[in-house]
Every structure is written in C-alpha cells, then in structure tokens.
C-alpha cells in the first residue's frame, strides 16, 4: 500500500480506497477533515506537489466531488483526495481553501468558483473573473447548464448558419423538381 494511505484511514477516517495502479490511489475524505488530511500528506508523508484541484458534478446523487491530486516525487506516488460536497441546486457549495499550502491553489479555486460555483472563502481573488468575463448565468461546467441552449440563445440566429437535414438537402440539390426521386428509386431497387 502507498505511503500515507494508512494514516488517511486511521487518523482521518478516509474511505472508498481505489488503487488504480501502482503509485496511483483514489480515496475519499470527509469535508471537515480534508484540509487537515492534505496538510498531513504534504508535511509528513512527502506529497509536496499539488498537481491540480478539479471537480466532478454528480447531479443525480446530489453530490459535487472535489478532487485534489497530490504527488510525492520521492516515492513516485500520487494520491487523489476526493471530497464529496452536498450539491446545491443554485450552486454556492463551500470548501476550505488550501492556498496557504500551495500558492498556485488559489488559481484552481478561482476557476472552480467560476466554472462550478464552488466557493473557497478567504482564497485570494476567488471572486475575480478567471476565464469568463461579465458572466451572469449558471456556472457553465455544472451538469444542468445546457450548453446547446445557451449557444442557441446567445449566438443564433446568425446569417449563414442555416441547418439542413442532410438527407433531405441532398435530395433537393440532386433533383429540385422531384426531391423524392432518389428515395423512390432506392426503394424500387431494393424491391427489385
């Protein structure tokens, strides 16, 4: 078993361990103990690199999963800490910041606030826009954000963006006088 896993289970009550392959494990830690567990992994167990923080939206289970990928370069090992937040319908889940452990964490946290609506109070610049500018809609990476609808509402109608059914369009182009000709011919060929 990877270094640090036992501590996570015994000291922080971690669960749902999945050892994906040698040197890569996924484990769930309770939200209230997550920052303490991450601090322990960094300061005691040698997981000194924060590879990334990201989220996965499990809308059907009412959960918002945060994943903290930590790397221990000396042991060539990685642990992904899963934190399952209670998902809110209108966004606004909240999690403790870890920018005091890694300065670059503030950018991921800023992005998560913008794209998933997960707040990290006290994280520097967390409310500043990162990628989106002047965005007042739902955080767009949440599962219930309808990208197609947004694109249709925002960008359509625009000249030159007419959509055709490919089959009908081809028939009309091939024989404008009798668009059904090729369909009839095909059926006839099949019957013969």
């Amino acid at each position: 078993m990877q270094k640090g896993i036992n501590n996570l289970i015994e000291k922080f009550g971690a669960s749902d361990l999945v050892e994906r392959r040698s040197g890569l494990s996924f484990i769930t830690v309770d939200q209230t103990k997550a920052v303490a567990a991450i601090t322990h992994l960094k300061d005691i167990d040698g997981y000194t690199v924060l590879s990334f923080i990201t989220a996965a939206d499990w809308i059907e289970d009412g959960k918002m999963q945060l994943t903290y990928m930590l790397n221990n370069p000396a042991e060539v090992a990685e642990i992904a800490i899963r934190v399952m937040l209670e998902r809110k319908k209108e966004a606004g889940e909240s999690m403790e910041t870890i920018h005091h452990l890694w300065p670059n964490a503030k950018k991921w946290q800023q992005e998560l606030k913008e794209m998933y609506g997960v707040d990290f109070p006290t994280s520097p610049g967390v409310n500043d826009s990162f990628i989106l500018e002047g965005w007042d809609d739902m955080p767009p990476n949440r599962r219930d954000f309808d990208t197609k609808q947004y694109a249709e509402d925002t960008f359509f109608p625009r000249g030159g963006r007419v959509t055709h059914d490919p089959a009908t369009y081809m028939r009309e182009q091939l024989d404008p006088k009798d668009p059904q000709y090729y369909t009839k011919k095909k059926k006839k060929d099949i019957n013969s």
């Binding site: 994906r20 392959r21 890569l24 590879s51 990334f52 990201t54 996965a56 994943t67 990928m69 992904a80």
Partner: peptide
C-alpha cells in the same frame, strides 16, 4: 464507473488527463 489520472512528458513538462 471509475476514474484515473494518466500523464506523459510533453516538451513543456508533465501533461496529464484526469478522466472520470
């Protein structure tokens, strides 16, 4: 259902994909 993290070395450094 599952998740993984796959990485390789790009010309700029570690390049990875977290896939669920």
């Amino acid at each position: 259902k599952g998740e993984t993290y796959v990485k390789c070395e790009s010309s700029r450094g570690e390049y990875g994909m977290y896939f669920v």
